[in-house]
């Protein structure tokens, strides 16, 4: 009786793992998946780029912030083309499994963060009363909900250019406020942007601003 033929399974598995490692290896490369020229105009990007341009000038590379933006945008766009050519065909597989290898975690700490603020008022000309302000221990209305990571993603991810889900979130919050207190006639949800500076640097209040405010009247929401 002859010995059993060696199984091909280990070799097939090893080939499969090699293919997966190759694809995911490419996906791990920290290359941009898309480029938007407008991203370079954000205050945090401008602050970072100005500092980098200053640094380059100090070591003898004479470059302005605008020139640096041009170089970065052009090289980034080139990388996007490479990414699209190699990994685009595999996108359906990544999409349907929700898998991926993008690990840019706290790449650029936000020096212009936004504080979410929820305010209500009981009459048309009455004063706005704060219900919630991010991290403010005295205004903690629905803190658990607003600090929950998926909800935080909805508002913190839209501080630059609020989309439909920002409107939907604010309307949903307004409905909760109207339901909880029948005296409330209007709800305003907005961000307060401020500038974080390092210890020892002079405080900068010039950029403080209320942004992306959405005001909802009871009649608009509780129909």
């Amino acid at each position: 009786m002859s010995a059993a033929a060696p199984s091909r399974w280990p070799a097939v598995r090893a080939a499969g793992i090699a293919a997966v490692l190759f694809v995911h290896g490419l996906a791990t490369l920290p290359l941009p998946h898309s480029m938007r020229r407008a991203s370079f105009d954000e205050p945090v990007a401008q602050e970072e780029l100005s500092a980098q341009a200053r640094l380059l000038r100090r070591i003898g590379v004479n470059v302005t912030t605008e020139e640096l933006v041009d170089v970065m945008f052009r090289s980034g766009t080139a990388w996007v083309s490479v990414y699209n050519a190699v990994l685009k065909p595999l996108e359906p597989a990544f999409r349907i499994t929700g898998t991926g290898q993008s690990w840019g975690l706290f790449t650029y700490p936000d020096t212009f963060p936004h504080q979410l603020i929820v305010e209500v008022r009981s009459s048309k000309s009455g004063p706005w009363v704060t219900l919630f302000a991010g991290l403010d221990p005295e205004h903690r209305w629905m803190r658990d909900v607003l600090a929950y990571r998926r909800v935080r993603g909805v508002y913190d991810g839209q501080t630059t250019k609020p989309g439909a889900s920002w409107n939907n979130l604010t309307k949903w919050l307004a409905r909760r406020a109207f339901t909880e207190d029948p005296a409330v006639q209007a709800v305003r949800i907005s961000f307060r942007r401020f500038h974080t500076v390092k210890p020892g640097e002079p405080p900068d209040t010039t950029v403080e601003a209320q942004r992306h405010a959405r005001t909802w009247a009871r009649a608009q929401v509780m129909r």
Partner: peptide, 30 residues
Amino acid sequence: CAGIQKTALSWGPLGGFSALFLILQDPAIA
């Protein structure tokens, strides 16, 4: 990959290794 993508100056000596200080001032994260 998370490490090599931390390219902001605040993660390095030129930014005074201030990254964690800055992150902890962000009301959406702290």
